[in-house]
């Protein structure tokens, strides 16, 4: 029996040495990871579904930490995840009211040149602000379509149109559009301006028959003061708008539209 004491003692010494080596190695070879990202990841369900628009929960957590995206995009996580994330970040976050994207362009303008280059809005936009006569107009080559994870946006003629029922408000199209024509708005806001042109009335008129002239008739007519003209363009404040439709009646160009409410409330998430 005592012949075994020596090997075990040896084993203990080896174990101790190994323990030291491993501790040292752990220290030397440690990969520095951002602690915030790790903490945020714990708030997310870690199923990597892509609903937030990111390939995986880790990328979404990294984006939240980098403050490039809203913290309430996680659909499976829902309110619970949003609450936990806001706790980690120390900010107040409300669970998302459903949002949809909207493309602020009617696509009625003519082209200023024939474009035969790379099928990309960004590429076309590099040449004299795009192939449309209106320098703010939707190029219609589908950069937003390519990035949409849900197929909620498509090209109709020469402009992009969002299918509100499928939009999960991930915001990827907002970033993709070089003309910055897409915005995210609360899905209950059905009234929208179909133009993004900040040009003066004269220029806008020469470029597109449906462009907003900045005539201020809508601003005067709005009972809630939700419409304001900024830079020759009508802008609707979603918090104030009650979808009464008075601005649409008064607009001479008819570039303000009220969306069909049925499509606004249909959820794209059948999961």
């Amino acid at each position: 029996m005592f012949t075994y004491v020596l090997p075990v003692a040896f084993f203990i010494i080896i174990g101790f040495a190994v323990g030291i080596i491993l501790t040292a190695a752990n220290h030397v070879f440690e990969v520095k990871t951002d602690n915030t990202v790790k903490k945020l990841m714990e708030c997310l369900p870690e199923i990597n579904c892509g609903a937030c628009g990111f390939p995986g929960c880790e990328q979404y957590a990294a984006a939240i930490a980098a403050e490039t995206v809203a913290p309430n995009h996680c659909k499976p996580g829902g309110e619970k995840a949003a609450a936990q994330i806001s706790e980690v970040l120390g900010i107040a976050v409300s669970a998302s009211e459903p949002e949809v994207a909207f493309v602020h362009c009617s696509g009625s303008g003519a082209e200023k040149y024939i474009y035969a280059g790379t099928e990309s809005c960004v590429a076309s936009e590099m040449y004299y602000n795009g192939k449309e006569l209106c320098r703010f107009g939707c190029v219609g080559l589908g950069d937003c379509v390519k990035v949409c994870p849900n197929g909620a946006i498509h090209i109709e003629g020469t402009r992009a149109v969002v299918t509100p029922g499928k939009c999960i408000a991930c915001g990827l199209c907002v970033k993709a559009c070089p003309q910055k024509l897409i915005t995210l708005q609360k899905s209950r806001q059905l009234t929208n301006v179909l133009c993004g042109s900040k040009d003066t009335a004269k220029i806008t008129k020469s470029a597109c028959k449906s462009g907003c002239l900045g005539c201020k008739l809508c601003e005067k007519k709005c009972p809630k003061g939700a419409v304001t003209i900024k830079d020759n363009l009508a802008v609707i404040n979603g918090d104030l708008c009650s979808n009464c439709g008075k601005c649409t009646e008064v607009c001479p160009i008819k570039c303000i539209v009220v969306r069909d409410c049925k499509s606004a409330t249909k959820s794209s998430w059948l999961l």
Partner: peptide
């Protein structure tokens, strides 16, 4: 089956 339109990997 959830179909193509609900697939989160649609973009890629």
């Amino acid at each position: 089956t959830i179909g193509c339109e609900n697939c989160p990997s649609r973009a890629t």
